[in-house]
């Protein structure tokens, strides 16, 4: 399956970031495994340590299995002064996880992110590709509940 993803791209190093995005997006646990790194390394003729270096440099990639839904709460100054810390506390208690952890049922992984560029609606978080703004503790319950229900 990793090989098939690789084949969609020309075997040049500049495609590495694309290939990694693709692998992570298509994996049900949204991460890049060692096995995947080896396949990409073989395909691009780039050492595995280089790929691991890239993988751990960028905040959007994960080397650990994650939940079905990835919550990325912004912690940058504009969201912070609008109370993102309270939102974080709410998420932690509601999901019973710490930052970087996945809920027991595998539904959510909680992460922090730097500025998401939606500061007009701070505090903001992304769940997968969707942006949620003007967050309040009540809104968090509603959003998480809705996603849980949808699954």
């Amino acid at each position: 399956m990793y090989k098939e993803i690789c084949n969609k791209y020309a075997p040049t190093k500049d495609n590495l970031i694309y290939i990694l995005h693709d692998i992570q997006d298509t994996h049900p646990q949204h991460y890049i495994s060692e096995e995947a790194v080896e396949v990409v390394s073989e395909y691009l003729k780039v050492p595995a340590n280089h790929i691991f270096g890239v993988l751990t440099f960028y905040s959007m990639y994960s080397t650990k299995p994650r939940g079905t839904n990835i919550i990325r709460l912004c912690e940058s100054p504009p969201c912070y002064i609008k109370g993102s810390d309270n939102i974080l506390r709410k998420l932690k208690t509601m999901l019973s996880v710490n930052v970087g952890e996945t809920t027991k049922d595998g539904a959510f992984t909680l992460e922090l992110a730097a500025c998401l560029g939606v500061c007009g609606n701070a505090p903001v978080m992304m769940v997968n590709d969707d942006v949620y703004g003007d967050l309040t503790e009540e809104k968090i319950e509603e959003i998480i509940g809705k996603i849980r229900g949808g699954n």
């Binding site: 190093k13 970031i17 990694l20 780039v46 280089h50 890239v54 960028y58 905040s59 959007m60 730097a114």
Partner: peptide, 25 residues
């Protein structure tokens, strides 16, 4: 279009170029 992967430092022009080439930024 090339899509980045989340690193503030890639706003620095040479780091951005490194990233475009498929390296750490």
């Amino acid at each position: 279009i090339k899509v980045g992967a989340g690193a503030y430092v890639c706003g620095e022009e040479t780091a951005l170029i490194e990233s475009l080439e498929g390296n750490r930024g």
